[in-house]
């Protein structure tokens, strides 16, 4: 091993944060670019299922909250894109990878949001799963990513709480509302526990990422934690988790749960989920139709600069 690589390994082993100007092994850089950009794309695409309900939120309070949440997601995407840029990929390249399907985003956002209760289930379960994934990332070995995640996690907590509040209101409401909440839980539970990614024995990147301290826990460890917590939270809502194999295992001190439909997971990853095409098309359309805005801003900045130069000349 050469000196640079050795020095890098030492830093990783001693929990010394890696920074953008430090020497990095190529694969560490590539792994991070893949993970951070995928994470950024998830935040950006993640705005779409919820944006669907902003104009139809049931009250002004819910609308203001949902708007704030979706705005946060845009912000999270931006923090993460700039963290990825420190590794030498450009913003345009990342946009291009999203639009051409070269880069993935979290599969959960390829499911449709068909009722208001979905806003509750997404906040509670999807953001809940995201938080569980993200909290350990605040200590990830790459500094710019870790710092972005600290900011994201601070803001994410309200997302989950507002979702749970929606679920609580619905489950304490009329029979129709309670059914809506249960239906949302039925549809979002399994995709949410799939969010932690493939099982450890079928997760090609996990071992190396744990060694590099990019990841702190494996997919299965986090999934188990999420199930244990989620089942208890569902009890407070008086709703039923849609898993007939769910059972407390005294010996393990964890809930046992049913078999995950990994075929469905891989099918959605491969682009055949209910909304994959629609999501990418919406993003592309926003990018293409926003071009004139970007052009106008560039043109205006040039004008402003020329005017400033002109007035300096006159003053002189």
């Amino acid at each position: 091993m050469d000196t640079l690589a050795k020095h890098f390994e030492e830093k990783i082993n001693n929990e010394v944060t890696i920074e953008a100007k430090d020497w990095l092994p190529d694969n560490y850089r590539k792994t991070l670019i893949r993970q951070i950009s995928q994470h950024a794309h998830s935040e950006i695409v993640g705005m779409l299922p919820e944006g669907n309900w902003i104009t139809r939120a049931p009250s002004l309070r819910r609308k203001a909250v949902l708007l704030a949440k979706v705005q946060d997601e845009a912000g999270h995407g931006l923090y993460l894109y700039s963290a990825a840029e420190t590794l030498g990929i450009s913003r345009d390249e990342m946009m291009d990878q999203l639009h051409t399907g070269k880069a993935k985003y979290s599969s959960i956002f390829n499911y449709p949001t068909i009722s208001w209760a979905d806003m509750g289930a997404i906040g509670w379960l999807v953001d809940g799963a995201a938080i569980m994934n993200q909290v350990p990332l605040c200590r990830t070995s790459y500094g710019p990513y870790a710092r972005a995640m600290v900011r994201v996690c601070k803001e994410e907590s309200f997302h989950q709480r507002q979702g749970f509040e929606i679920m609580l209101t619905l489950s304490n409401g009329s029979e129709v509302q309670r059914k809506m909440a249960q239906d949302a839980l039925n549809r979002w539970w399994w995709p949410s526990i799939m969010m932690f990614g493939p099982p450890d024995d079928n997760s090609p990147h996990t071992a190396q990422s744990v060694r590099w301290r990019i990841k702190r826990f494996t997919n299965d460890e986090l999934r188990q934690k999420f199930v244990d917590i989620g089942v208890e939270q569902a009890k407070i809502l008086g709703l039923e988790v849609p898993d007939k194999d769910l059972k407390w295992n005294e010996e393990r001190g964890h809930y046992d749960f049913g078999v995950i439909n990994w075929d469905e997971f891989w099918n959605v990853v491969k682009g055949n989920g209910p909304c994959n095409k629609q999501r990418v098309e919406t993003r592309k359309k926003a990018w293409d139709e926003g071009k004139w805005v970007r052009d106008a801003a560039t043109a205006y900045a040039e004008k402003r600069k020329a005017r400033a130069a002109e007035s300096t000349m006159k003053a002189a």
Binding site: A20, K21, S82, E85, T86, L87, G88, S90, R91, D92, E93, P144, R294, A297, T298
Partner: peptide, 15 residues
């Protein structure tokens, strides 16, 4: 802070 500023010409500068 970003070390590598590798904007494409079409990309707005980084701040």
């Amino acid at each position: 802070m970003s070390d590598k500023v590798n904007n494409k010409p079409s990309e707005w500068p980084l701040w």
